[in-house]
Design a binder for these strands. Structure first.
Length: 955
RNA sequence: GCCCUCGUAGCCCAAUCGGCAGAGGCAGGCGACUUAAAAUCGCCCGAGUGCGGGUUCGAGUCCCGUCGGGGGCACCA
């Protein structure tokens, strides 16, 4: 076979050789090293920053799993590489690299399974990734490829933690400030202490507590998500809506445990409001807004019957307060103990008591059951409302009616005030509960015509049954009623308008080994102290057993236990924190794996810096507001010019990273107030999987396909199999790797194929047999430049034919536009089209071939470099200016004008592009085919869109 | 249940502002080259846009409804 093959054909073997050669060339020359404005790389690689504009782009850095990459993973990486290369050809200084997120649960679990140290497996996995990716020719600045497990990196992760720890959120200033300012505020009395006491009257411990209460990173005992099967607590964001952990699907229980938290809730408003300043997909903005869940309403206090105390509730429907016929507290609510009497009030409905002799027994029993329920179980018995009467009554502040107070787990402690006023007539959940417990309802909004009388009414309407001797809401619409009643409540001291959020503080502790240690030690009194910068990093110690203590997944009463707690020699440490050497105890929890990814984009700008997490000048150069694509944009927050990644990080990583970024901004450490100015979500490459009659997965690449369309039959070893569509993975036996593709076709072909499959943001199925199309394109391009038999240059210096020249400029114009919109698939189509014309004419003028090679360079860089060199250029094509379209050549000499009668095409005429409407109309009126189809019909109207269309309306 | 997306040829996908439904690729067919096959080259084939309404001179595109795929949220008061 190979004897007959032309010697200089662009075969996979030749492609592979070319690719390796250029990859070495780039490596050797530091071609992709980006210069910084200051520091060691102020002059770098091929150039200094000069007065070139900058462009910073990146992928969401990968978490290297043991399985290596399949063809779906590099999709985003290839896309960003195309953009990076395109931007370089536009003359921009481009910051583009790829680091590794490498602390965290999966690495640890994998290490536990294989009995190896997580560092070893993690580093091996990273090596595998680097090897696989190197083969693709990605133009990363490899000097900037940070790894979160590197102590030189996590030193600064820990340092940022201490900065957050040493900060508080000043609501009046609307930003974070150093903790010293808080102490000064407490001292001067301009900031009230939590207890309201004078600073001077507080003991040292009370003062410390007052400061701790305001820190942005704080330790507290609060209900957290405890997953016994995982042996650690997890953040709210890491619990799926089934109430299972995102990693491993373990049940989650609510437990009160002392844990480190991040006060992300202080930033709720800014995290929502600043979404208006970034260029992100609306869907991701919607997800974040929804997650933060800002809702406007009122806090209303219901006095307790026979007591001076009251219960504060949060409601978004204060207008319905006249219909509040009972109240519900969350089972964990602090007031429950104080309000619950010893005995049931006279004539208590037996349905309310849970069968208990007295309220205290009923409440205790209900609380026990509720606390043992995992989130999953709460989901499962969904609509069935449960609860018990506390024995206490409150007073509806507008009706004066006594209303019974219940506890029920459909009210959550973590939201609002953990207490509600229940309005069965206007809330379906309250309706269900009221129905079950025989509680009354009063309609306060007139339901719309035809409303089912046996349900709550949540629609709009006019208020009814809502008046007392001081106020009447009757006849008002809902919005008007809300405003009126809030004003009334405020006037009478019973309530006020307020805003509540679904977002809760970020649970930052993990009882795991494989994470950043906290830079925190405790003194003999148990008070926490931050480790000063000079003693960072706090390195992760070696331990004999790094696996966490896990439990039966259902064992709700188990307690988390950190692996670092076993490193006894490490835990006890003597330090001088400024007041002489003392013995301290280290924090043994570690940070969640999100910590390292909260600020890596900043580190990319100056990764070799040992003095600072990033030089201020570097951060400002690459990420500052009004720079790069933010130039000329009003209110630009700065940040990475383009960030590409999957939508699955919409709340986790992207919310946390924004939060840290804003804290650093507030503290004056950085100039940008958002980390990622523009976000793009790439789609996924999915794959078909096949199962036999027993439901067993069979290898997808051995399945035979016959027939077309709905009649297609799939067989494996002659037996019919069924097809399904889903993720690529080992268990589905449908994995295709980039390594296979590079071996079979070459990296350039693989890159072009991935980019040509469809729009980047859409998911699509992988189809190996279609890859050959991309190979044919590159092969034809090669053949247009180089004689396959002799290896000689085939290009001629003749001027191209006029129509070829025009096509070239249309192509340049279109490709530029497509690259700008990340529409690589249409750009490739245009390049193929131009190349096919060259193939067909059999003659390749240099003035067409060179721009074609240049335009192909971002997509198939190795091939382009090789052809560029063959064309006689010594320099890398990397920085050669991208072709410019000549506007004069974009203007067509003639345009085909469509002549329609009643919207139907009747004729096409060639006209000048500059033809005026009147002239075109006349041409259409006189057109023979038009006259024919018009017959004797009257012309009613003529729509002229010169020069492309005329539509004659007749009747 | 609510929200967001996508439905165009056998398959993957194009179609600026509403203006000729087709740029490109795969598969398929025919031909050239070949002893033959593969590869290569040339030519060809193909849908009225999931379905039903509406707006408009004109709808794949806008609006309403509906069905199907994918994703997010869900006792959040």
């Amino acid at each position: 076979m190979s004897d007959t093959e032309p010697q200089h054909r662009y075969t996979p073997e030749l492609a592979g050789a070319i690719e390796r050669r250029w990859q070495e060339h780039w490596q050797e020359h530091g071609t992709f090293h980006a210069a910084n404005p200051s520091g060691p790389w102020a002059q770098s690689g091929t150039a200094d920053i000069g007065d070139r504009p900058k462009f910073m782009l990146q992928d969401m850095f990968p978490y290297p799993s043991g399985a290596g990459l399949h063809v779906g993973h590099p999709l985003g990486f290839i896309a960003t590489d195309v953009i990076a290369r395109y931007q370089r050809m536009q003359g921009r200084n481009v910051l583009y690299t790829l680091g590794y997120d490498s602390f965290g649960l999966p690495a640890e679990q994998y290490a536990v399974q294989t009995g190896q140290h997580p560092r070893k497996t993690t580093e091996e996995n990273i090596e595998t990734y680097i090897g696989q990716l190197r083969r693709l020719g990605l133009s990363h600045d490899d000097r900037r490829a940070v790894q979160t497990i590197d102590p030189a990196y996590y030193k600064w992760t820990q340092w940022i933690f201490t900065r957050i720890y040493d900060s508080w959120y000043d609501e009046r200033a609307g930003k974070a400030r150093p903790i010293a300012d808080l102490v000064a505020g407490y001292e001067s009395g301009t900031v009230a202490t939590p207890s309201g006491a004078h600073w001077g009257d507080l003991t040292a411990a009370e003062r410390a507590a007052s400061v701790d209460a305001r820190r942005l990173a704080y330790k507290s005992t609060a209900p957290v998500n405890w997953a016994p099967g995982l042996g650690t607590v997890v953040a709210n964001e890491e619990v799926t809506n089934e109430g299972l952990t995102e990693r491993g699907d373990f049940p989650v229980f609510r437990r009160n445990l002392p844990q480190w938290m991040m006060r992300i809730t202080a930033y709720a408003d800014r995290l929502i409001d600043d979404l208006d300043r970034v260029d992100w997909p609306e869907s991701v903005k919607a997800i974040q807004r929804n997650w933060i869940g800002r809702s406007q309403g009122a806090a209303v206090t219901f006095p307790l019957a026979g007591s001076a105390d009251g219960v504060e509730v949060f409601t978004t429907r204060p207008d319905t307060i006249f219909g509040a016929t009972y109240m519900v507290l969350a089972p964990e609510h602090a007031l429950v103990d104080t309000i619950t009497p010893d005995a049931w009030p006279a004539s208590t409905d037996p349905r309310w008591t849970g069968g208990a002799e007295d309220p205290r027994t009923a409440v205790a029993a209900y609380r026990a059951v509720a606390s043992r329920k995992s989130d999953l179980e709460r989901q499962v018995d969904d609509k069935a409302k449960t609860g018990v009467f506390t024995g206490a009554y409150a007073i509806n502040p507008v009706t004066g009616q006594r209303v019974p107070v219940f506890i029920a787990d459909y009210v959550l402690m973590g939201y609002g005030t953990g207490a509600i006023m229940a309005v069965p007539a206007e809330d379906p959940r309250d309706w269900d509960f009221a129905k079950k417990f025989g509680l009354p309802h009063v309609r306060t909004v007139q339901p719309a015509e035809g409303h089912d009388e046996d349900t709550a009414y949540t629609g709009s309407g006019l208020m009814i049954n809502s008046s007392n001797d001081r106020i009447s809401l009757n006849g008002k619409d809902v919005d008007d009623a809300k405003a009126t009643i809030i004003a009334f409540l405020e006037e009478h001291g019973s309530g006020h308008g307020t805003i509540t959020y679904k977002l809760r503080d970020w649970l930052f502790s993990r009882q795991r080994y494989w994470g950043e240690p906290f830079p925190i030690v405790y003194d003999e009194d148990g008070a926490a102290h931050a480790i000063p910068e000079r003693l960072l990093p706090v390195e992760l110690p070696e331990v004999a057993d790094y696996s966490p203590k896990t439990y039966d997944p259902q064992d709700a009463d188990s307690m988390p236990e950190s692996p670092l707690g076993r490193a006894t020699e490490w835990v006890t440490v003597e330090l001088d924190l400024g007041d002489g050497p003392k013995t301290y105890t280290r924090e043994t929890d570690t940070m969640p794996n999100w910590a390292g990814s909260c600020w890596y984009e900043i580190r990319y700008t100056d990764p070799a810096n040992n003095e600072r997490f990033a030089d201020r000048e570097c951060e400002e150069y690459w990420m500052g507001p009004g720079r790069g694509d933010g130039e000329g944009v009003a209110n630009d927050p700065g940040g990475v010019d383009l960030y590409v990644g999957g939508v699955e990080h919409a709340v986790l990583h992207l919310l946390y990273a924004r939060f840290w970024h804003k804290v650093l901004f507030d503290l004056g450490e950085i100039s940008s107030s958002e980390p990622f100015r523009k976000l793009f979500n790439q789609g996924y490459i999915q794959a078909f999987a096949f199962r036999d009659a027993r439901g067993q997965v069979v290898p997808a690449n051995e399945v035979v396909e016959e027939g077309e369309g709905p009649a297609t039959k799939y067989t494996w070893n002659g037996a019919p199999v069924t097809r399904e569509y889903g993720k690529m993975g080992k268990s589905l036996k449908n994995v295709v790797t980039p390594d296979e593709m590079c071996a079979q076709y070459g990296a350039d072909t693989f890159r072009v194929y991935e980019m040509s499959m469809g729009p980047l943001d859409m998911s699509r199925p992988w189809e190996t047999r279609a890859v050959v199309g991309s190979q044919r394109f590159l092969q034809r391009l090669w053949r247009n430049v180089i004689d396959e038999e002799t290896g000689a240059l085939r290009v001629v210096d003749d001027a191209p034919a006029d129509d070829l020249d025009r096509l070239l400029h249309r192509t340049i114009d279109g490709v530029r536009r497509d690259f700008g919109h990340l529409h690589f698939h249409t750009a490739i189509a245009k390049l193929i089209e131009l190349n096919n014309v060259l193939t067909r004419t059999g003659m390749a003028p240099r003035s067409v071939v060179e721009p074609l090679v240049q335009m192909t360079a971002p997509l198939a860089p190795h091939l382009a470099e090789e052809l560029w060199r063959t064309l006689g250029h010594d320099e890398t094509i990397t920085f050669v200016a991208f072709p410019q379209a000549d506007p004069a050549k974009l203007v067509q000499e003639t345009v085909t004008c469509v002549v329609q009668v009643m919207g139907k095409v009747r004729d096409r005429i060639e006209v000048s592009p500059s033809i005026d409407a009147a002239e075109l109309e006349q041409l259409a009126r006189d057109n023979a085919k038009v006259l024919e189809s018009l017959g004797d019909k009257q012309i009613r109207k003529i729509v002229v869109r010169a020069p492309k269309l005329v539509n004659i309306v007749a009747g």
